[in-house]
Amino acid sequence: GHYRIRINGREFEIRGISEEEIRHLEEALRNGADEKILKEIVDRLRG
């Protein structure tokens, strides 16, 4: 998958993330885990 997200007015492209991972992120966001989720995304993109 290849997705664009906007955070604090800046747009980011996220590549190589699966539909299942996105559902997991959405679930966590609904549970209020904003900073933790951003850290997970950044860590994943770093490799």
Rank of each mutant, 00 (worst) to 15 (best):
E13F: 14
A28G: 04
I5K: 00
G16F: 10
L25C: 02
R23P: 03
R23E: 09
V42H: 04
R23F: 12
E11C: 14
R44N: 08
E35L: 12
E40Q: 12
E35Y: 14
I7D: 00
I5D: 00
R46V: 15
A33S: 07
L45G: 03
E40H: 08
Y3G: 01
V42K: 02
G16N: 13
E13D: 05
R44E: 05
G32Y: 08
I7P: 00
A33E: 08
E13K: 03
G1E: 07
L38S: 01
I41N: 01
E35R: 04
S18G: 07
V42I: 14
R4K: 13
R10T: 11
K39A: 13
I22K: 06
N31A: 11
R44I: 07
D43N: 12
R23T: 08
L25S: 00
R46P: 05
H24W: 15
G47I: 11
I41T: 04
R23Y: 12
R30I: 09
R46G: 15
L38M: 08
E11D: 07
D34R: 05
L25R: 00
L45Y: 10
D34T: 14
G47P: 11
V42Q: 04
E40A: 14
I22F: 14
V42R: 03
R30S: 11
I37R: 08
A33L: 13
G16V: 08
E20V: 08
G9W: 01
R4F: 14
H24S: 12
E11H: 04
R6V: 15
D43M: 12
F12S: 00
R23D: 05
E35N: 06
G47Y: 06
I17L: 07
L25A: 01
S18W: 02
E26Y: 11
R15A: 06
G16M: 06
I22Y: 07
R15M: 06
R15H: 13
I17K: 02
E40Y: 10
R15Y: 14
I22P: 00
G16Q: 05
G32S: 05
A28R: 07
I17T: 03
H2V: 12
R44W: 14
G32W: 07
K39M: 15
R10N: 06
E20Q: 09
F12H: 02
L45R: 03
K39D: 05
R6Q: 09
R10S: 06
K39E: 13
R30F: 10
N31M: 12
I22S: 03
A28P: 00
R6F: 15
H2W: 15
R4N: 03
I41F: 11
D34A: 15
I17V: 11
D34Q: 05
F12Y: 15
A28T: 09
A28F: 11
N8W: 08
R44V: 07
R30C: 08
S18Q: 04
R6G: 01
E21Y: 05
G1K: 07
R10M: 15
R44L: 10
D43T: 09
E13P: 01
R10W: 11
K39H: 11
S18H: 04
E13Q: 05
I14G: 00
E27Q: 10
G9Q: 02
H2D: 14
E40G: 12
N8H: 05
K36V: 10
I5L: 04
E11P: 02
E26K: 06
R6H: 07
S18K: 06
S18C: 04
